[in-house]
Design a binder for these strands. Structure first.
Lengths: 154, 154
DNA sequence: TATTGTTATACTCTATAACTATA
DNA sequence: TATAGTTATAGAGTATAACAATA
């Protein structure tokens, strides 16, 4: 289980620390845009188009009832709105308001810039390797759980 | 700003997705051990020894008052306790109870196993590269903020 | 005066259980 | 019956502001 030489930073520890750092940057960016982290995440998920509650709750790993509250509060702040589904009268699709779209895009861009800055000293080839290694990990998770790490295909 | 060929998965997006995945695994593990994610994180930070409130709030990026509540609840569950500081009568040091130590160790181990499984298909050398690349990113963050990503040196 | 930590207050976030309405 | 979503409730997490005790 333990290899002959322990590196300075263990692999799993590196993953956890990186994830904490990214999370922290995300929280900061959200706050700078006067959003809660959860609202920012919601906006990011809606940038590509309207999504139904069930799909959203899967993507966010939230119970439907938790999502109802989140959408309610985001709605009260004028970031999103509920649109009725034309095919299924039980369902609704959550859409970004112009303000939600604006803030979502701003936050997304700020996030990218911040992360780029963090990786600025990394040589290009290392970035590519890192990216593809992460792709492998995400694929492995998909294989283990059967769930995709992107949009839920209905 | 944009290189000649955009890879399938952009670098920053890969970082964000990886971080979400790790976060999700962390939440699952915490829940399986009947802990909230924040409690699990608290236990992990205390494994190496008692820590004062001010240092804890820095490590967790929490206001002191938020931390008071977190420690209160963890205390009510018998996971941690407040010990008075011998040198400074204002301060206290948060210590793990035996139960907290047990649960913290279990959760930490489960987390490692889960992440190892996710990276299982990755060749050793890629893992090392990934680890050192992450080390670089963490170091860059330290350089930019002046804060270390590990224990806060008082 | 500065620092350590708590209290008071007001939100947001989250899950569980029970519910309504549509399919 | 099953699915989409909400309501009710309870508790956890968080920040801001004001405070107490010690340094």
């Amino acid at each position: 289980m333990v290899t002959t030489k322990e590196p300075l930073l263990r692999f799993t520890e590196a993953l956890v620390r990186l994830s904490h750092l990214v999370q922290q940057v995300f929280d900061e960016v959200a706050r700078e845009h006067d959003l809660t982290p959860q609202q920012a995440q919601l906006l990011c998920l809606l940038i590509d188009g309207p999504v139904g509650m069930t799909d959203l709750s899967r993507s966010l790993h939230l119970e439907k009832s938790s999502l109802t509250g989140l959408v309610d509060r985001a709605g009260k702040r004028g970031l999103v709105a509920r649109a009725r589904d034309s095919k299924d009268r039980r369902a609704c699709r959550i859409v970004l308001t112009p303000e939600g779209e604006r803030l979502g895009a701003l936050a997304h861009e700020a996030m990218s810039e911040r992360l780029e800055a963090l990786a600025g000293k990394l040589p290009q080839e290392h970035r590519h390797l890192l990216t593809s290694a992460i792709g492998g990990i995400l694929a492995e998770h998909t294989a283990q759980t059967g769930r995709a790490w992107t949009a839920p295909e209905s």
